[in-house]
Write a protein that binds this DNA or RNA. Structure first.
Length: 114
DNA sequence: CTGTTGACGCTCT
DNA sequence: TAGAGCGCCAACA
């Protein structure tokens, strides 16, 4: 069914967009969602259902909430994301809060390969 | 089929 | 400025 294909297309699009996020920069689910005309909930869900090879292919750790907070809750990979972000030069507060979010916030429109 | 949950965002206080 | 509540839709039980 085209429904599954449409879902896969959106998934691939999100992965491609996240893959274009430069190092030291972070983007939010809302930004990606608006760019892909998909609700933030779906973006988060899609990223949550990513396979292990998919997560290794895309910098999912560079995607945080609009408030710059990290919340992996169930999967428990928040600690891993915080470590990866810090490894890329992104400072994360004690409450999983990215410091200077607006300063490192990346936007799809900046990409000339639109 | 119904009810609850969830990598969230926005609005009100 | 920070904190709490409501709404959105898809997946899961």
């Amino acid at each position: 069914m085209a429904n599954s294909e449409a879902f896969a297309r959106i998934k691939h699009d999100i992965l491609a967009l996240v893959r274009e996020v430069p190092i030291g920069r972070v983007t939010t689910y809302g930004t990606l969602g608006r760019s892909l005309d998909v609700m933030p909930r779906h973006v988060a869900y899609i990223l949550a259902m990513l396979a292990d090879d998919e997560r290794a292919a895309v910098p999912w750790h560079r995607v945080v909430s609009d408030a710059g907070t990290i919340n992996l809750s169930k999967h428990g990979r928040g600690q891993e994301q915080r470590m990866r972000l810090r490894a890329e030069g992104v400072s994360v507060g004690v409450h999983q809060r990215v410091e200077g979010l607006a300063a490192i916030l990346w936007h799809p429109d900046e990409t000339t390969s639109a």
